[in-house]
């Protein structure tokens, strides 16, 4: 099989792009964690970021909504709706309302389930009780958690199981009705059943949201994502349609990684 060093899929103009990085470089001190990553994130699709530990995929993800501010030095451009997010003028708090994030470990706030969702909404100026209630219900339904918690919305979110807590965190993020949802290994702390539920939730969500997910679980990437980017040593070495990538990888390193010969 003929292989290349790098293969990055370029989208046709009919595919809407939600987010695009250009020459994104990320430094921790002198250490270059990401060297020149160019990636287009298609809208209303699930894009999986895969790669060995330390390949920079989480660092890359966290820089997309500026969660690396003050931790790493991010250079280059992140284009979102004709705006370069990686500039001083950007109001990061307003931006994160559009680009939400869910983390590896479920991190519900020590508040009730209801307040976990309304908290950010209220901070962003939604105070009408009826509207809040609707938002909570919609978000919980979209996150496939409503049936399990509808009778205990005023109970502490800390009493939820890991899988439920993670879906609450997703509900909390989508209650803000963001454009893009960034997920950093959201299922890595969950058991297989919760993971399956979470994956189903994500597949249903892509109708309304653009999802970028970092995962170590290759079958998971293959199951749920439309596109996959393979990170290796701080750069994207292959980005392609998920089916194509997992059946006919174009880069030798990707072939080694997905067939388990590496890392």
């Amino acid at each position: 099989m003929e292989t290349k060093d790098r293969y990055i899929l370029q989208f046709n103009s009919d595919q809407e792009i939600a987010l695009e990085t250009k020459q994104l470089k990320i430094f921790y001190g002198d250490y270059e964690a990401i060297s020149a990553a160019d990636l287009q994130i298609p809208r209303f699709k699930i894009t999986a970021l895969i790669g060995a530990s330390g390949s920079g995929k989480s660092t890359f993800l966290r820089s997309l909504n500026r969660m690396n501010d003050g931790i790493a030095n991010v250079q280059g451009q992140i284009w979102y709706r004709d705006l370069d997010l990686n500039t001083k003028q950007i109001d990061v708090y307003a931006m994160r309302r559009q680009i939400g994030m869910v983390f590896q470990r479920p991190n519900p706030f020590p508040k009730s389930i209801y307040e976990n969702i309304t908290f950010a909404l209220e901070r962003h100026g939604i105070t009408d009780k009826k509207q809040l209630k609707e938002r909570v219900e919609t978000a919980l339904k979209q996150a496939a958690l409503w049936d399990e918690v509808k009778d205990k919305l005023n109970k502490s979110a800390l009493a939820l199981s890991g899988g439920q807590a993670q879906r609450l965190c997703i509900a909390r993020a989508i209650a803000l009705q963001p454009d893009i949802l960034l997920l950093d290994e959201p299922a890595s702390a969950l058991d297989p059943i919760s993971t399956a539920q979470l994956e189903e939730t994500l597949i249903n969500l892509k109708e309304h949201y653009t999802i970028v997910i970092v995962t170590h679980n290759l079958p998971q990437a293959a199951r749920i994502s439309d596109y996959t980017a393979h990170f290796s040593q701080g750069t994207v070495i292959e980005f392609n349609d998920t089916k194509d990538m997992f059946t006919q990888p174009k880069v030798a390193l990707t072939n080694e990684y997905i067939s388990g010969d590496f890392g």
Binding site: M67, A120, R172
Partner: peptide
Amino acid sequence: ISNDQRNGGLALGISKWETVTKIILPA
């Protein structure tokens, strides 16, 4: 208080001050 809580607040577009006063401090 776990850093996950701080990240959780910031990732929802809540300002640092409000994350500290409304999430971290009550916890």
